[in-house]
Amino acid sequence: MHTEKEIIFIAWESPEGGYEAHSPGHSIYTQADNFEELKAMVHDAVCCHFEEDERPRIIRLHQVLPPGDE
């Protein structure tokens, strides 16, 4: 069994309001009304996606500008 040490999420402000996040390389996507709630939703999504003994111990949330805002 191979356990990843960390997982990275890319987060951005949604055009409809709130925030969205996904993890490249995994089929994990979540959204929330504000950034603090998004952090909790990302943690919950990781817990749901991985079995406890395979779960990455480090979760990185990288916020980027939405397309067109560069």
Score class of each variant (00 low, 15 high):
6 E>A: 12
14 S>E: 06
13 E>R: 09
3 T>W: 05
25 G>V: 11
64 V>Y: 03
2 H>N: 09
13 E>G: 00
2 H>C: 09
33 D>G: 13
14 S>G: 03
40 A>C: 06
36 E>A: 01
5 K>A: 09
67 P>K: 02
33 D>S: 13
52 E>Q: 13
41 M>C: 13
29 Y>N: 00
30 T>H: 02
67 P>V: 00
48 C>G: 03
61 L>T: 14
32 A>Y: 07
2 H>A: 11
45 A>H: 11
22 H>R: 06
67 P>A: 06
9 F>K: 04
24 P>M: 12
60 R>D: 00
28 I>D: 08
61 L>G: 04
2 H>F: 09
32 A>R: 02
23 S>R: 11
10 I>A: 04
25 G>W: 07
4 E>V: 04
50 F>M: 06
10 I>P: 01
54 E>D: 07
54 E>R: 07
34 N>Q: 13
70 E>F: 12
40 A>Q: 14
66 P>M: 06
40 A>G: 12
29 Y>I: 13
10 I>C: 02
22 H>M: 03
62 H>R: 13
20 E>P: 09
66 P>V: 04
32 A>W: 02
63 Q>E: 13
55 R>F: 03
51 E>A: 12
34 N>E: 07
55 R>I: 03
52 E>N: 12
7 I>M: 06
24 P>I: 15
41 M>H: 09
44 D>M: 10
49 H>F: 15
11 A>C: 09
40 A>D: 13
30 T>A: 04
47 C>T: 05
40 A>Y: 04
31 Q>W: 04
2 H>R: 12
49 H>R: 06
49 H>N: 09
18 G>R: 03
30 T>L: 03
27 S>M: 07
9 F>G: 01
39 K>T: 06
43 H>E: 14
16 E>A: 14
25 G>D: 05
38 L>G: 00
5 K>F: 05
53 D>T: 12
51 E>V: 00
5 K>D: 10
8 I>T: 15
3 T>C: 11
26 H>P: 01
63 Q>Y: 06
21 A>T: 04
65 L>T: 08
35 F>V: 02
43 H>W: 08
50 F>V: 00
33 D>W: 05
70 E>M: 07
48 C>W: 14
21 A>N: 00
45 A>V: 05
67 P>M: 05
1 M>E: 02
24 P>L: 14
37 E>T: 02
31 Q>M: 05
20 E>Y: 04
39 K>G: 03
47 C>P: 00
57 R>D: 01
22 H>A: 06
8 I>E: 09
18 G>T: 11
33 D>V: 15
50 F>Q: 09
